[in-house]
Design a protein around this nucleic acid. Sequence first.
DNA 1: GCAGTGAGAAGTAACGTTTCTGCATGAGTG
DNA 2: CACTCATGCAGAAACGTTACTTCTCACTGC
Lengths: 391, 391
Amino acid sequence: MQKRYFSLPCSHPPNGPPEPYYQPAMTAAGNHQASRSTGRRLERAGIRDVAAAAGVSITTVSDALNGKGRLPDTTRRHVREVANRLGYRPSAAARTLRTGRSGLIGLTVTTYGEEPFTFTEFAYFAEMARSATSAALARGYALVILPASSHHDVWSNVALDGTVVIDPSDHDPVVTDLVRQGIPVVSDGRPTGNLPVHAWVDNDHEDAMRRILDHLTDAGARRIGLLTGTSTDTYTRLSTAAYLDWCERVGQEPVYESYPAHDPCAGAVAADRLLARPDRPDAVYGLFDPNGTDLLAAARRYGLRVPEDLLLVCCSERAAYATTEPPISTLSLKPGRIGTAVVQLLIDAIEGIGAGQPVQQVMPTDLIVRASSQRRQPRTTVSSPRPPSGG
Amino acid sequence: MQKRYFSLPCSHPPNGPPEPYYQPAMTAAGNHQASRSTGRRLERAGIRDVAAAAGVSITTVSDALNGKGRLPDTTRRHVREVANRLGYRPSAAARTLRTGRSGLIGLTVTTYGEEPFTFTEFAYFAEMARSATSAALARGYALVILPASSHHDVWSNVALDGTVVIDPSDHDPVVTDLVRQGIPVVSDGRPTGNLPVHAWVDNDHEDAMRRILDHLTDAGARRIGLLTGTSTDTYTRLSTAAYLDWCERVGQEPVYESYPAHDPCAGAVAADRLLARPDRPDAVYGLFDPNGTDLLAAARRYGLRVPEDLLLVCCSERAAYATTEPPISTLSLKPGRIGTAVVQLLIDAIEGIGAGQPVQQVMPTDLIVRASSQRRQPRTTVSSPRPPSGG
DNA sequence: GCAGTGAGAAGTAACGTTTCTGCATGAGTG
DNA sequence: CACTCATGCAGAAACGTTACTTCTCACTGC
């Protein structure tokens, strides 16, 4: 026991708080150590040491600490006290090897460049990761952050009970490999292609689109434009399809511009293009996080007032949109709820709850209405609606 | 191989993409399985199966795959091919148990409430975590997110090679326990008390404070106020001390208000208090992330123009401060660099590089000067400096 | 012809748990 | 009184690696 303290920069005395049942217990560990030829570094007390010190078998120690077996409370308490006194910590590796459970969940984010996180979806990811961590912890699991397209080494070096994948790409090799190994995978976002995930959680993007378009119409919009992406992920696809669908239903000619969503500059250019069109929309919804500022800047360049001349909504989790001039209405995907749901489904799959049935869970979104999409503002004089410039 | 697919909600045919070298290889695993009495779930190929299939011993397999031992390239290649064909993945748990290395690093964030992340430092934490993850991955380690004051269970359930602690509190029980187990701990932020971390990384807060105060003076400030915290963490302590020191040196009466930094509302109140004082400062530095908006709002309430009547700087990583009206100068702690440095030090300690000497590393900060702290603005007419209202 | 050498590979003991099985003992039954 | 049966515990076999030691040749130099 003292030896352990010698090598540590620890200033308090080697004798801990007074404990009952004190015996020269570490001698057992000492003998044990002496019997082993390999001199390892800092010797931690193992289950054997506890068993020897408590005068029972290792079976009894294991059972006592794990609440299993048929043991009277006296034995259980005694073993626990001894374990405590020796500072015994079970080896996670040994337990994992034996039980096949590591208590570890992978959190995988798709990477666009070298860095493991995408910046475009950062606020979303941050909140999602936060809630996922919370949810996992609450059920006794910890999250390991892993990049989707990493060196394979890292992936195979960590024992995962399951993995959460955010926006998996088509035929993601990592996901396929994990599933092939029998490791449950749950994705945030509908998997494209036929990626064999066990479950997924996604927002109801079609419903969200309809609600936004209706909201803009209610606010007086006559021609609603869309800023969308060229990529083929489900979010973009579903949203754009819902927009086109809505246009057809209400009889509006679609007015949209698409750009590669992962290119931060392209958004501003596309926003400009959209407002430069002869059939300029009097309301725009931007599918991606930076579109709010992009559109606001473009509107300024064209001398358009928001919301008087142009109504604006964008999909984002950024708190900053509450304090822009004017504040911009946003659609929140509620990443916190998603993160929680994904983790719950994954752990259910890991623990065999729900019979391993694949599950799809569609989550609602939140439309946060701010000044940018309201013609009638509470604290302002009512401005008469302006006729749209092109129709 | 087919059996594995049966239990999966996988819609594509059981035969994957065409693979070279296909043989009924799983029979090896099958026999292996048959020889064992316990019928476990999905059988993964183990090193034994590879050895049997390749017609060599498990030692040879291990050596071939790990690049060790004395093996001719032919054997090595052969073993690798067989391993590949069987889809062999070494068991991380077994490796960890045997080698004592898990390749896992804990990332611990102090929690104020129930949630594992602090919101106040969120932009800082996000960037720090991102870069720490990158740095760890680059050296073959993965990060596990763990809350500082969590159920002890989670901590002892994961085999950690080391831990990064962000802003450890006084005598943190988790840190003390980890160190007692001989697990290297490196902290972001100087440890308070005599917490026995192996190394720490921190910004040069005194230097930062001096630079900011000098900058504000250069911009015309006559009386510089400080918005600071009541807590006793080193950041607050060092910064406040440096401020007082500077005041004494230049002969200015200190003008500061402190508030509990973890209370989001208190900041706005304290900002108000600061500007309501009879000896109102004509420049303010806010130590915490939200202080920029707090102070801007307070200035508006008092009819003070920024930067004409009040110069403003605050310590934050928020990108949003670049687009406020006016844009606010910020001090960036460069969390990316910190995250990288912390991880490097930790992995050095884990791998025994640097002889286990405790290391302290002080990192520079970045002052990002924006309109809020410049009386002379590039694109504006020069406004004559106003006399400070109180002195 | 024979010890010496070194390559190539096999044998086997750990690593620290959990869990299955088994062995006593004593109390309750017909 | 033989019997079941529950209780309290111990023994030992995994779990899947890695690493240390040993073995077998074939080839060298003397």
